[in-house]
Design a protein around this nucleic acid. Sequence first.
RNA 1: GGAGGGGUGGCCGAGCGGUCAAUGGCAGCAGACUGUAAAUCUGCCGACGGAAGUCUACGAAAGUUCGAAUCUUUCCCCCUCCA
Length: 418
Amino acid sequence: MEFKSEFIKEAVERGFINQYTDLEEIDSYLSTPGRRAYVGFDITAKSLHVGHLLPIFTMRLFQKCGHKPIIIVGGGTTKIGDPSFRNTTRPMLSDEQIEENLQGIKACLLPFLKFGNESTDAIMLNNADWLNNLNYLDFLREVGTYFSINRMIGFDSVKTKLQANNSLSFLEFNYMVMQGFDFYILFKDYDCQIQLGGQDQWGNIVCGVDLIHKKLGKTAFGFTNPLLTTSDGKKMGKTANGAVWLSENMLSSYDFWQYWRNVDDADVIKLLYLFTDIPVNEIKKMESLKGQELNEIKVLLADSVTAIVRGDDSLDSIHKTAEGVFGKSGEDLSKLSHLQQYCISLKELKEISIVDVLVNSDLCSSRGEAKRLIRGNGIYINDISIDENYKFDSNLKAGDILKLSCGKKRNLLIKISD
RNA sequence: GGAGGGGUGGCCGAGCGGUCAAUGGCAGCAGACUGUAAAUCUGCCGACGGAAGUCUACGAAAGUUCGAAUCUUUCCCCCUCCA
């Protein structure tokens, strides 16, 4: 299929689009520049994470193609909590927490979108501005009347929850009504005719499209991103240590880079399409790569994504650290600038055991864990596996640096002071 | 409002008076093999302790008992059905 709009053409090629209301109409609508689309983020944390990256990159492309992105932060809807496909109820957040999170999330979006007052500049709106002051009775009469319960309980997002015998509170059940109302406001007051969301948002998006149709007699559009899963079917962006955060305050750039360096072979090409600016035809050429060559491509992926999200200033030093950690031993430890550091005095070091150091530096969460790791040959000092009787070298002096590792990937520099 | 069924470690899920720090699965961690991947195999997987052992933990609290995740009572929460 030939597309008229630059945005839809590239979005389809790169795999940004999953479901849509009517792709041909969206395409022709977007063939005129200056159109608007919105995506909403609930603000349940101080930072967005890798799971949010797909809608963000979609909006980034949208802006590049001459359109105007609108970001809705869910100051209002977060008070309800989206129940879609979830089997646990979201925790309730206080107004203060929501405000704090809101600031963090704004900061996360700055690297991706240009905000401002020009025609294609992104704008950010908070749905609390229109949701907070709703009058219940008026709202029910003006909006509630257009929603059919019969239909709502038929949505997959709701059905899944009901079938799993999880309780769905009336509060949560209203979420899709609120989101539908958002779209209605955006359509009516901001000339925004398109809503984008994750795959799990389809039901909520459709609610808005329906509401606009019923209340205004006009057609709105919606489309979703695919659900981003790793090749083994898990949601992307979760690691043992929690989500992969976009904010540097929550996850260091080195760890962020490592996340991409370590993705599955099977995911590399897909991720290049989604999260880099590398042209489609160049990525196509890489599709046939295998083995070691594909492994090298992960560096390209990690570099590209990190440069966009975190800036490219630190890439050099990240590379040095990574080469130092994963290359041959005997490297200059001072080059490993991205490793976490643990300072300890010479005197103290001689008094305490390696187990204490492991626990005090947070490399291990308990003494038991530290001991088990040592027994299992999982602890190294300067790349040499140690045993239970390990004593720090008595020749150590102030200013020396030791590399302490749990396995190959968790590393720490011990800096010895006077 | 009534009747019934449940709440067990990050998740799922056994156990239904002592042998239970609690079978099993998933997830996780480490080792081997590799390519900082995957798959596979091995070990670990509440805290403290060198160990013996001690403490904390089966929704919450009280109780019965030499002894409770297991029995009793009250409370909280969830689910199903009926009105």
